[in-house]
Amino acid sequence: MQKIISPISDDVIENLRAGDQVLISGVIYVGRDSAHKRLIETLDRGGELPFDIRGQTIYYMGPSPTKPGHVIGSAGPTTSGRMDAYTPRLLSIGLKAMIGKGLRSDAVKEAIKEYKAVYFAAVGGAAALIAKSITKSDIVAYEELGPEAILRLEVKDFPAVVINDMHGGDLYQEGKAKYKIQPGAAS
């Protein structure tokens, strides 16, 4: 497994390929449905985002409440497709990496190529395991959204796999094609 640091540098992103398994350390931001809606509304108004998104990594996640003595609750990825409508805009202003789970739209995949970005999946449902890799969690904005607030996380060896790379690689398509058994074939 390849260890990488977030914010992820352009040369690291260039070398990542669909199917690469990585352990991410450093800083990532958390935002999901309502937070994305607000970020885009802010941009539409010509306002300033609550954090500098350039070069950053966004994790689509809404944690369970933090138990006393813990850094965060369970913290697995949510379905990325719901953020597709907002993603190309954020990539166009400098977002470089996304972590989530599930299929992305063609528009997002094109934007990943155009803006030289990367989409990782974390394992959906591995939420207690992933929480172990989060060493610090702070609320950055939209606290009133509860589990949908924007958080700044510090992570160590957060496990993920590259799904869409900047060269057009797509693990969901390539992996499935590799293991598909055609109807009628012996199995």
Partner: peptide, 10 residues
């Protein structure tokens, strides 16, 4: 036989 696999990675 679809090949989707765990996590959808094949």
């Amino acid at each position: 036989a679809t090949g989707v696999g765990a996590g959808g990675v094949g």
